[in-house]
Write a protein that binds this DNA or RNA. Structure first.
Length: 800
RNA sequence: GCUGGUGUGGCGGAAUGGCAGACGCACGGGACUUAAAAUCCCGAGGUGGCAACACCGUGUGGGUUCGACUCCCACCACCAGCACCA
């Protein structure tokens, strides 16, 4: 059989029949399978795309055969820097490059026989799509969740672009690897922090893997504690946040972030302001990366002449600034309790500051006695006025109560998760649909005028001061204010790459709607994504952004359910053959399409799924291709052995295979599912008689994995009905075998293996086993204490 | 340091607390062939032994259990993420 010809033939038939079209409002139960839509780069599909599309295709085809109305869509997340950089380099318009890349991707995906519903294809750079991205942004704007702020942003001097924290992890630009610097910039921000608690709580509604939930929880980073209102001798007020209010009597100084507004405010009163200023400048020169890397050694500077008051007892303590206190976490100020915090301890040693032990049980001469050590250990408070003698847990409660009653503080939660920097001074993104009017301020473009289309430009590179190339087009920038009709200027920033992917699963439900981003009733029908497959690298960014947008839309009545995804699963990263990371720079990338050319789509599909556990990281191996090719050839050959018969002749192995493969697919254990297909094939090859019914089951089980060859064989055999309907089932009693070989142990040591008749009673089985020659011999002169029989597995006889 | 994950043959990997190593790769032997490729058959965790067989084996050390790759405790190594988070 010529695999490649057969594959082409079936791909054409499926396309003509629109075999995989999902039907809105169909009576069948729905099942929504989502893979992260690819970024159509010039390089074509890579090994990060193909396994997940194949894996979800297996599930999609199985679910269809089981009678589900399956929605398995695909589209293109096409805005972004690589295309823009390509455009800058080659002078090709990003529109043109994107179009070409998408054509290539489509051809490649189709050649793999992935059963996407192509009638729902979407593209984030399509005006009819980004119109709604802009529309959603305007809803944020109208609710006050989009705001402009001057923030120190991570700035890539090479790309000339502001990056979010997520995009500059490790202090280098995610795209080009250049170290980022800190640069003040006015940016659009989305107030994601307002959704921190909802994003945290919502996880309980999902069935994400526990480790994914944990990663999101850690990213959101909730910590509960006390907001303490403090004051300086000067009368200036400031707040600090602490999770250890029980140590409040141990405060011997306070530390402010160098950027704290009070520092500037008090410059006339600080006796050593020159020195302070020097320290601040030193801090500012450091990027966030350096500031957090050049740690270990504490540094700081006292604000001489400035004293703060401990609100609980009025004690006067000194105030420092230090770069270990971050301006953007908590309140940018901390209380320092060197006796019970390691960082404060180090700092206090350095500056020779006093310590007050307020929790018993440690030895503060040696080191700080921290909360990790004293919590839950019944430790009691010392030197804490009327709270002395209470346990830490009691003290927390009493202190919080006392502080609240006296308006000195309150219990609050803080979150690590920051707001989302939403502006990019680039070209290839959705224009932010706002104008600035001297009179009216920032004004939204009216909905009827959406989309604000991306104008053509001559140069795609940002201006040298880092502004968007759009800012060069005067007649586009200058416009009229929709509010007062006066002169106004358009916002020239565009949205980040993540915008279009923050709602795309909703668009698939109704991709051509021009009245709304999706029809409400259709969203109700399709509901949550049942299974969402993607890469681990997106767990804390895309997945949070997407949930954030969805929850916002839900809160405003635009979508009918509060969490977008039910299950989230992720494929393991594919490594190079030697186990190292694949990367263009290392030159060890693998083009999965080569294997489609070499072996055909079905072999390439099987081979990739057979490489190992789908969810674990694993090296790419070519040596799985040949055995999969062999498997298909064996099944082709088996066809000629099949005899007429509408009954299963090989009941047991067939039933067992249905059960295993069914469960394996549900659990993403594609590698063991394929090995079971191999086992079944071998069994049928060895069987005396293989009926049509036996063979039909094999073909149906094979179909999700190797859809082309299996369907070709099905049709060649002239079988009635379609291969991809009526997923095979089995009778429980066919799983039972009468005679099985089990191991027999004496005192947990295997003595021999015997065949037993499973239909007998347990006591008879045990009795029969004792007459076995080896067992009988071993039991001589021994007293049997008890016998354990695990059906179909083992007998263990305990003797003395 | 913190968080999450992973440790099983030469390799990829299997094992609802019940015969460790399924299914493959690579390897060895054989059949077919002038030969090779392809295909098919057989073998194979390690050590010792001609063999029957014995002993040892799932990162390390303990524990629970008739029985532990699996559960519990401690530790080690590696991978990933976060990193002075108050």
């Amino acid at each position: 059989m010529n695999f490649r010809e057969v594959e082409k033939k079936w791909q054409n038939i499926w396309e003509k029949e629109q075999r995989f079209k999902a039907i809105d409002f169909d009576d069948k139960p729905k099942y929504y399978i989502l893979v992260e839509f690819p970024y159509p780069s010039g390089a074509g599909l890579h090994v990060g795309h193909t396994p997940n599309q194949i894996a979800m295709d297996i599930i999609a085809r199985k679910k269809r055969a089981q009678g589900y109305n399956v929605l398995y869509p695909i589209g293109w997340d096409a805005f972004g820097l690589p295309t823009e950089n390509y455009a800058i380099k080659n002078g090709v318009s990003p529109v043109e490059a994107t179009k070409r890349n998408i054509e290539n991707f489509k051809r490649q995906i189709k050649s793999l026989g992935i059963s996407f519903d192509w009638s729902r294809e979407i593209n984030t750079t399509d005006e009819n799509y980004y119109k709604w991205t802009q529309w959603i942004f305007l809803q944020f704007f109208k609710k006050g969740l989009a705001y402009k702020a001057t923030v120190n942003i991570n700035w890539c001097p090479k790309c000339k672009i502001g990056l979010s924290n997520e995009e500059s992890e490790g202090g280098v630009c995610e795209r080009c690897g250049t170290p980022t610097i800190q640069k003040p910039k006015t940016q659009w921000m989305l107030k994601m922090s307002a959704y921190a608690e909802k994003l945290l709580q919502g996880l309980d509604e999902t069935r994400f893997w526990e480790n994914i939930k944990t990663m999101q929880r850690n990213w959101i980073g909730k910590s509960e504690g006390t907001l303490l209102h403090c004051s300086l001798e000067t009368g200036d007020l400031f707040d600090i946040f602490t999770t250890c209010i029980e140590t409040i009597y141990g405060i011997t100084y306070f530390v402010l972030a160098p950027e704290h507004p009070l520092v500037e405010k008090l410059k006339d009163k600080i006796e050593n302001y020159d020195e302070v200023l020097k320290y601040i400048e030193k801090t500012q020169r450091k990027t966030e990366f350096e500031r957090t890397q050049l740690i270990k050694e504490k540094s700081g500077c006292q604000l001489k002449g400035i004293y703060a008051i401990n609100p609980i007892n009025g004690h006067k303590v000194p105030v420092f600034i230090s770069d270990y206190v971050l301006a953007n976490y908590g309140t940018g100020a901390v209380m320092a309790v060197p006796a019970h915090d390691e960082r404060d301890y180090d700092f206090a040693k350095l500056f020779n500051l006093p310590m007050i032990e307020v929790i018993s049980g440690g030895n503060i001469k040696e080191r700080a006695f921290e909360k990790g050590e004293y919590l839950g250990k019944n430790c009691k408070l010392l030197n804490s006025d009327k709270f002395t003698g209470l346990t830490v847990e009691e003290a927390k409660d009493s202190l919080n109560k006392y502080l609240e009653e006296n308006k000195l503080g309150q219990k609050i939660a803080t979150y690590k998760m920051r707001d989302w920097v939403f502006s990019r001074q680039r070209y290839w993104g959705e224009p932010v649909p706002l104008v600035y009017c001297e009179k009216c301020g920032w004004v939204a473009i009216p909905e009827k005028d959406l989309p604000v289309t991306l104008p053509k430009v001559d140069k795609y590179h940002p201006t040298d001061d880092g502004e968007s190339p759009l800012s060069r087009i005067d007649d586009w920038v200058n416009t009229t204010c929709p509010c007062c009709g006066g002169k106004a200027k358009r916002e020239t920033d565009v949205m980040p790459n993540w915008a279009g992917s923050s709602w795309y699963w909703l668009r698939y439900m109704d991709p051509n709607n021009n009245k709304a981003f999706a029809d409400f009733e259709k969203m109700k029908y399709w509901g949550k994504v049942d299974i969402y497959n993607g890469g681990g690298e997106h767990v804390t960014r895309h997945l949070l952004y997407a949930r954030f947008w969805h929850k916002f839309l839900y809160d405003n009545g635009f979508v009918p359910f509060s969490e977008p995804f039910d299950r989230r699963v992720q494929q393991g990263i594919i490594l190079a053959a030697d186990g190292s990371k694949m990367s263009k720079s290392a030159g060890n990338t693998v083009d999965p399409m080569l294997y489609v050319e070499k072996y055909g789509a079905d072999v390439a599909r099987l081979g990739q799924m057979f490489m190992g556990d789908y969810v674990e990281a694993k090296p790419w191996r070519e040596d799985t291709m040949k055995p999969c090719e062999k498997l298909l050839n064996r099944i082709v050959a088996l066809k000629d052995k099949v005899q007429k018969g509408d009954y299963r002749n090989n009941k047991n192995i067939v039933a067992l295979s249905i059960k295993d493969i069914d469960e394996d697919i549900e659990n993403l254990k594609f590698n063991t599912a394929i090995s079971q297909i191999m086992v079944l094939t071998t069994a049928l090859e060895k069987a005396e008689l293989v009926t049509d019914e036996d063979f039909k089951v094999l073909l149906k089980l094979l179909n999700p994995f190797a859809p082309h060859i299996s369907e070709e064989l099905w049709v060649e055999k002239g079988y009635i009905g379609r291969i991809d309907e009526n997923w095979p089932t089995y009778d429980e009693k066919d799983l039972v075998v009468n005679i099985v070989e089990i191991a027999v142990q004496i005192n947990s040591k295997i003595i021999t293996r015997v065949n037993i008749d499973t239909s007998l009673e347990e006591k008879d089985i045990i009795k029969n086993v004792q007459s076995d020659e080896k067992i009988a011999k071993a039991l001589q002169n021994k007293q049997i204490i008890k016998s354990i029989y695990v059906p179909n597995r083992i007998i263990n006889i305990i003797v003395k």
